[in-house]
Simulated scan of single mutants.
Amino acid sequence: MPNTRWTIVTGASSGIGAEIARQFSKIGHNLVLVARRREKLEALARELTSADRGFVEVIELDLGRADAPEALHRAVADKGIVVHTLVNNAGFGLRGDFVDLGLDEQVAMIELNVTNLTRLSRLFLPDMIGRGQGGILNVASLAAFQAGPHMAVYYATKAYVLSLSEALHEEAKPFGVTVTALCPGATESEFGARAGMEGSRLFRSGRMDATKVAKAGVEAYRAGHAVSTPGAQNKLVKELNRLLPRAIMRRAAGAMQA
Rank of each mutant, 00 (worst) to 15 (best):
E39D: 12
L41R: 03
R38F: 03
K40H: 04
G93I: 05
G91D: 10
V83H: 13
E60T: 05
D52I: 07
L101D: 09
D52Q: 15
R95H: 09
A66C: 08
A51N: 06
V58Q: 07
P69H: 10
L103A: 14
V58Y: 05
V58P: 01
V76F: 07
V82H: 08
P69N: 15
R65V: 03
A90W: 04
V58C: 06
G80P: 12
F92T: 10
K79A: 14
T49L: 06
L72K: 03
E39K: 00
F55T: 00
L63K: 01
I81G: 04
L94Q: 14
D52G: 10
R38A: 06
L44P: 01
T85L: 15
V87T: 08
D52A: 15
K79G: 05
S50N: 12
A68Q: 00
G96P: 00
E60S: 03
G93C: 11
F98A: 11
G91I: 07
G54L: 06
K40P: 03
L48Q: 08
K40I: 03
R46L: 06
L101M: 10
D52V: 08
E47W: 04
V83I: 14
G54D: 10
A71P: 01
G93R: 04
H84M: 11
A35N: 09
F55A: 01
E47K: 00
A68F: 03
I59V: 15
P69G: 11
G64D: 13
F55K: 00
H84A: 13
A43N: 10
A77N: 13
T85M: 15
A68N: 00
L48R: 10
G102R: 11
E39R: 03
